[in-house]
Amino acid sequence: MMESIQFKLNNKNRKITIDPDRTLLWVLRNDFNLTGTKYGCGMGHCGSCTVLVDDKPVRSCMVTADFIEDKSVVTIEGLGTPEKMHPVQKAFVEHDALQCGYCTPGMIMTATGFLQEHSGPSRDEIVDAMEENLCRCGAHPRIIDAIQSASKEI
């Protein structure tokens, strides 16, 4: 059954008619071509698919389209562009805090949501906030450093 859903996506008002049970991850990737949001596990275990919903990190593989009704969704594409990067994106580049880059959008969205609520976090607090995001390449030490340095810019 199709329903009409209104929401904000990367700061633009949107209205779509959609099966409300569809998973947000695939709506973003396929209906809006926002492929920066990645599938890693589909079960909420890895964090690759993280987006911000009303400024909070949400695993888009774990929520359905109706969840975003009247809410504001930000994906990695909405955070910043190659020409105008968000401070967290910039810090990841400056610290080389990525290798294959597949976990990176999810890492950045999780970190951004965390930093918006916590100013000047300690290393341990950053580790805690990122703990459930997986990175197979082992970029962890540099991701922690990048978030620490981005925290000074936000």
Binding site: R29, T35, T81, Q89, V93, D96, G101, P105
Partner: peptide, 19 residues
């Protein structure tokens, strides 16, 4: 030297097969 693909990867512009 910093990765040359950093900017593309942190902004979701880097294309993987599924993209």
């Amino acid at each position: 030297t910093r990765r040359t693909d950093g900017r593309a990867k942190v902004t979701g512009k880097a294309l993987y097969a599924g993209d």
